[in-house]
Write a protein that binds this DNA or RNA. Structure first.
Lengths: 209, 209
DNA sequence: GTCTATATGAAGATAGAC
DNA sequence: GTCTATCTTCATATAGAC
């Protein structure tokens, strides 16, 4: 029976509450209440609420940097791409409190702005690298203009899909299914794929619904 | 020299502040300060802050209902569609405070949830009707699955483009250019258009950048 | 209609005992 | 490490004079 450190319990509970209620609606009192510890105790471990947000963001950042380190020389298969999308949506969903009130969060924790933008740029770049890999394999045909627009669209969707999906069921905000997001993303690249791959994607993507 | 009623000045200034600073960051004190009136005066005209939000939402709702009343029997040209998108993005931009912190706003003003969802459904339906018009004119070819996915994507983009774009320049939040949003939207339908219309769209859409 | 003054309450944060 | 008690700040909102 391992005892989890209070510090880590605070982080875990904060993340869960942020995600389900929205970060601005979660007070330090609510966090400590949920953990059955005193507010004072919470402030013994973190000198401010923004320190909690900071540390959660750092985990998010680390996960994303790790995930988005896409090799730009290897040939990526569509299966690998789907898997990548799946991991991406799961990571975003795990930290969805950041995206749900993005403008608000970034304006109140302004030190996160630059770092968030950097992740966004990495994301867009990863999509570009992946699409270029598809192109060089002859699986994708697309003009430069359309490629830029597509990558922008993929990035937008990767950010906001889970928030958009949440709108459909604002009541229970606990569960998020990344499946539909992956489905949408695959359908974005679909028109630019070769005949055979289109059929392949249409089959596999359907399983995500 | 027409004198604008204080009540309307409150609405206008609130909207401007909400859009540029984010609704949660705008206090009633800030609004009255900006207007050089006393907080008490503000509360003479609106019994609570949520009444201001409510009334702004009502204007937004009215504009959207008006705009989204797309005739489902007429043939819509691509030019008309572009124009429609332009109006749509302008309307969304004018009330972008709603979208920037959507989850937060809808959770704190829960009476808006149902109404917002209704607008969202209308939006998606409008896109569907428009695409079906394109299909019946022989301008667009698309399968049922793809059409659903496309309409979802158009709706998502119509909601979040301006927030996404804002991320690129979080410093000056006053100006929003709907052009790039329209460009993205046109590129979403592009792959499903007939040869000739593709070229047409590529030309006109470029002018939006 | 508009003001000043003030009540109320909540959230973030600290001090000091155990 | 954890608690209780308390402080500060600030936002919403009201009362009553002009």
């Amino acid at each position: 029976m391992k005892k989890i450190k209070t510090r880590d319990r605070i982080l875990g509970t904060s993340l869960a509450l942020f995600n389900s209620l929205g970060e601005p609606n979660v007070t330090t009192l609510l966090i400590s209440d949920e953990l059955d510890i005193s507010p004072g105790n919470l402030y013994y471990h973190f000198k401010s609420k923004s320190d909690i947000v900071d540390e959660l963001f750092q985990s998010f950042e680390a996960e994303m940097v790790d995930l988005l380190a896409v090799p730009d020389d290897a040939d990526i298969s569509l299966d690998q791409f789907s898997f990548f999308l799946h991991l991406l949506f799961e990571a975003v969903a795990r930290y969805r409190f950041l995206y749900q009130d993005l403008v608000n969060v970034l304006s109140r924790y302004s030190q996160l702005q630059v770092r968030f933008k950097r992740i966004l740029a990495k994301k867009k770049n990863a999509f570009r690298v992946l699409c270029e890999s598809f192109q060089s394999q002859g699986v994708m045909t697309i003009s430069e203009d359309e490629l830029l627009s597509l990558c922008e669209q993929l990035t937008l969707t990767a950010c906001y899909w889970s928030s958009f999906d949440t709108l459909s069921h604002l009541d229970d905000r606990e569960s998020v299914d990344p499946g539909k997001g992956v489905y949408q993303m695959l359908h974005l690249i679909l028109p630019y794929l070769a005949e055979q791959e289109q059929q392949e994607i249409q089959l596999t993507s359907r399983s995500y619904l």
